[in-house]
């Protein structure tokens, strides 16, 4: 089928056409991977690529994050870049279909893979992050990228770590007709950047809020995280909360949901260590029914046991001589 077609095209002496057809044929044969990114308009000038609430899998290619963008009169502000080069490139193409304004700046909220590994697609614009995030990506970025190759495979092809180019701090910055408040937080990781668009009241929570999706804790300091949730609860004029993972809501219910989970998780593990339970038994402890609506519940709980248990043990076991 292909050969006669190629021959005909070659006879037509159109080398460009030959290479185009050949390339697309190869792509079909290999099974093209696509995130099929479609931005959802969530408010004035504001769009979100809603990710799944699963873990990273070879089916979803790591598309589990709510990345977004704001189309200001001074260009486009991109918030998170997704888990891979492919995601970043598809994201940029999808933004282009919404507006032909240039990308003005990219913000990356923390060092987790789904936030920063799409940054190659934005290498020509400033990529801003908190200093702690930049340091974390410098230190752990390659290990994090390696693990993503293992988890989602071919989706990662060509993905390389790009270190954010611009450190940012707590401040309010104006891009055209939008005022963005940069809110430095920590607890989910050592540096989590939340962004509140004061013009629209839309809060991008960075890493600290999960909505109907079990929170992740590989870099967590639970006590610090709980304080930051209180700080987000105290913010006025928030009309829409875009959590890093899970459902977008017009209220702060998921700030409370994240807090509820963290308090239960931390308290349960502390009680289990205190009671002399073994860590492998702690992996199977019952989880209250009220959390049944959180996706990847048991799997993420078990990961949290691995993250939190050794530290609790270290802090609580008495020194003996």
């Amino acid at each position: 089928m292909i050969r006669p077609l190629l021959r005909r095209l070659a006879l037509a002496a159109s080398l460009a056409a030959v290479s185009t057809v050949a390339l697309s044929t190869v792509a079909v044969a290999a099974g093209p991977l696509s995130y099929d990114l479609t931005p959802t308009r969530v408010g004035p000038d504001t769009y979100v690529f809603v990710g799944s609430t699963e873990h990273f899998t070879r089916a979803n290619g790591g598309n589990i994050l709510n990345a977004g963008f704001i189309v200001t009169s001074d260009g486009v502000i991109v918030i998170q870049t997704g888990p891979s080069r492919r995601y970043g490139e598809e994201m940029r193409a999808a933004i282009r279909r919404v507006t032909d304004k240039p990308i003005r700046k990219v913000f990356i909220s923390n060092l987790h893979p789904d936030y920063f590994l799409g940054a190659q697609a934005f290498a020509d614009v400033p990529i801003a992050a908190l200093p702690g995030t930049i340091a974390g990506i410098q230190e752990e970025g390659h290990g994090i990228a390696d693990n993503m190759y293992r988890l989602v495979g071919d989706w990662m092809r060509g993905t390389e770590v790009v270190i954010p180019t611009e450190p940012v701090f707590g401040s309010t910055v104006v891009f055209g007709d939008h005022r963005l408040r940069l809110i430095p937080l920590n607890g989910h990781t050592a540096a989590d950047l939340a962004l509140l668009d004061e013009t629209t009241g839309i809060l991008f929570t960075g890493g600290v809020v999960f909505c109907d999706r079990t929170p992740t804790t590989p870099h967590a300091d639970v006590a610090a995280w709980l304080k930051e949730l209180d700080a987000l609860d105290a913010l006025d004029d928030v009309r829409l909360v875009v959590p890093n993972h899970g459902h977008i809501r017009p209220d702060k219910a998921c700030v409370g949901q994240t807090r509820d989970w963290l308090i239960w998780l931390d308290g349960t593990l502390r009680a289990a260590v205190e009671a002399g339970l073994d860590m492998t038994d702690a992996l199977e402890l019952p989880i209250p029914d009220r959390f049944a609506g959180l996706d990847v519940l048991r799997a993420e709980y078990r990961r949290s046991v691995a993250h939190l248990w050794p530290k609790i043990e270290r802090e609580s076991l008495p020194r003996v001589h």
């Binding site: 239960w264 009671a275 003996v320 001589h321």
Partner: peptide, 21 residues
């Protein structure tokens, strides 16, 4: 080298029920 004292007998908490439920 270490010496670990044996505590007085205290009933262990029941972990078959989830904490905070």
């Amino acid at each position: 080298s270490a010496t670990v004292p044996l505590p007085a007998l205290i009933p262990a908490p029941d972990l078959s029920r989830s904490v905070g439920q």
